[in-house]
């Protein structure tokens, strides 16, 4: 567990929707040159996609887990990453908010940009980066705290102390995560008393509370039963109106149901990325076709 960059540079919340915790962001006065640093691939004035990787490589020690991955994720869309176990899809997802930093011996080469910010630049403040990228994990992982405190956690990190405002925003987040009606009368109860599906929606609410620009979901429904899975999928479709979502999934039907675009990965390489309908009906690559038709994997 190393590699927390000590830099305290505040990143300009460029292109944020809505106002979030104004008092907490008040310090973000200095304008970083996010616009000026846009890659040459995009003409001046054109909006860079929310999430871009260019020739991105990642090694765990000597094992190369990602090879020359280049992809773009446009705003307000759901991108699914599919592929067999060990193909690097979770690793790729965790590269966007640098969660891989927690694993000793990780090295990277290439570029990942989120909202124009170079994720692996030495000057990037990892803490600030992670505040702008929400993450939902495979297994629901609420804190052993009350439901309210779970959702308020990120807001309090931002320095929001006003009880009335906290309550309003907790309610808001729980509504967006389609959990409010089930927990409104027991916000003070332990989050661990909720069912697995409710816990996962609570984790989504917790991530949404700080209004991230991107929501990363690492097989968010794989530990849940079909009913809870259906609720999560509905939720993803709702959330894409407001957020940019990247979702890793094992389940090809799920990718087909919820995503706009699908990326297929195999042993660390991005084989194909395209419109979901196109990828599942007329795959361009032979490997993709073999995988989606169940010839391997």
């Amino acid at each position: 567990m190393t590699l927390e960059t000590p830099s305290i540079r505040t990143i300009l919340p460029e292109g944020r929707r809505g106002e979030t915790a104004p008092e907490a962001r008040a310090g973000a006065g200095a304008t970083t040159s996010a616009g000026a640093a846009a890659p040459a691939a995009h003409a001046p004035g054109a909006v860079e996609p929310r999430l871009v990787t260019r020739d991105f490589n990642l090694w765990y020690g000597t094992h190369q887990a990602l090879k020359q991955v280049s992809l773009e994720v446009p705003d307000h869309s759901v991108t699914a990453i599919i592929g067999p176990s060990g193909c690097g899809k979770s690793t790729l997802l965790r590269s966007f908010n640098r969660m891989n930093d927690l694993i000793p011996g990780v090295r990277v080469r290439g570029s990942v940009r989120v909202s124009g910010l170079e994720v692996y630049a030495p000057s990037t403040d990892v803490v600030e980066l992670r505040r702008r990228i929400g993450m939902v994990f495979q297994r629901p992982n609420p804190f052993p705290k009350s439901i309210f405190d779970n959702v308020a956690f990120g807001l309090r990190l931002l320095g929001l102390g006003n009880r009335t405002e906290l309550e309003a925003r907790v309610e808001d987040s729980l509504r967006h995560a389609a959990l409010w009606d089930e927990v409104r009368d027991r916000l003070g109860k332990s989050a661990l008393a909720l069912s697995g599906g409710q816990q996962q929606r609570l984790c989504i609410a917790r991530a949404l509370a700080v209004e991230p620009e991107v929501l990363l979901m690492d097989e968010p429904a794989s530990a849940l039963d079909p009913t809870a899975t259906a609720r999560i999928e509905e939720l993803v479709l709702d959330l894409k109106e407001r957020y940019t979502i990247v979702m890793v999934t094992h389940n090809m039907q799920q990718a087909a149901r919820v995503s706009d675009r699908t990326a297929f990965m195999l042993v660390g390489e991005l084989i194909e990325l395209g419109e979901t309908r196109q990828l599942f009906t007329r795959p361009r690559q032979k490997l993709t076709e073999d995988y989606i038709t169940g010839r391997f994997g």
Binding site: N97, M99, L102, V127, E128, L129, R130, R131, R132, I133, G134, M135, F137, R139, N141, P142, F143, P144, F153, G154, L157, C203, R206, A207, V210
Partner: peptide, 11 residues
């Protein structure tokens, strides 16, 4: 997983 959740929230 608790640590990951907190770190991912930008703690």
């Amino acid at each position: 997983s608790y640590r990951e959740a907190a770190l991912a929230l930008g703690a």
